[in-house]
């Protein structure tokens, strides 16, 4: 749900990074945070456990610049990936404008990817959203690992509707900004329709 503030001439949008546990959602945000000009970003907040697993969410506010006289601000969130945090995951999808699904390329995590994607579809439905129509991007992360499944095989298993798909290695930033740009672009395009 985009927040259009005519008083401050701002558009605020919410993007959620979704995916199975340890797929690299927080690493995506961390890289964006590290590589963004300090004037364009707020604090990166991580509500994590003592072992650095996301407990509730990570949050990063970003200013992208001005469109048609309106400042565009994106709020990036991650969800906790571990299966038993489903109640928290559901809460974070509230009012979402765009979703990035971060898939783990390791062969051993393929089932977890599929399970998480199904969970995303179900939780979006509960908020009245449809994965088929919401701005959505697929990221195949951890492409640098030797156990990575071939990208076209992953595409076949996980690509849902021909959504933009990017190969990534989040710690070094490969594909991270391409993913963000693709989802932000779709969210802004949606505004045009309203």
């Amino acid at each position: 749900m985009t927040f259009i503030n005519y008083a401050a001439r701002e558009i605020n949008c919410k993007i959620v990074y979704y995916g199975p546990g340890l797929c690299g959602k927080t690493t995506n945000l961390q890289y964006i945070y590290d590589r963004t000009n300090p004037a364009a970003k707020g604090k990166l907040i991580s509500l994590a456990t003592e072992t650095d697993r996301t407990l509730f969410f990570d949050f990063l506010p970003l200013d992208l610049g001005t469109v048609r006289g309106f400042k565009t601000r994106f709020h990036l969130y991650t969800v906790p990936g571990q299966v038993f945090y489903d109640a928290s995951r559901k809460l974070i999808l509230k009012g979402v404008d765009g979703v990035v699904f971060v898939a783990d390329s390791q062969e051993a995590r393929m089932d977890a990817n599929v399970e998480s994607l199904q969970n995303l579809e179900k939780n979006l439905h509960e908020h009245g959203f449809d994965l088929a129509t919401i701005p959505y991007v697929l990221q195949l992360n951890k492409r640098d690992l030797p156990t990575a499944v071939a990208a076209d095989e992953m595409y076949r298993q996980l690509n849902f509707k021909g959504e933009p798909t990017f190969e990534a290695t989040a710690p070094t930033g490969v594909g991270v900004f391409d993913t963000l740009k693709a989802v932000a672009k779709q969210v802004l395009m949606e505004l045009r329709k309203k």
Binding site: I11, V67, A184, L188
Partner: peptide, 16 residues
Amino acid sequence: DSPFAEITDEDIDSLF
């Protein structure tokens, strides 16, 4: 029209 009806691809690309 809404003020955003005329957002162009160019506008969006310029952000990035």
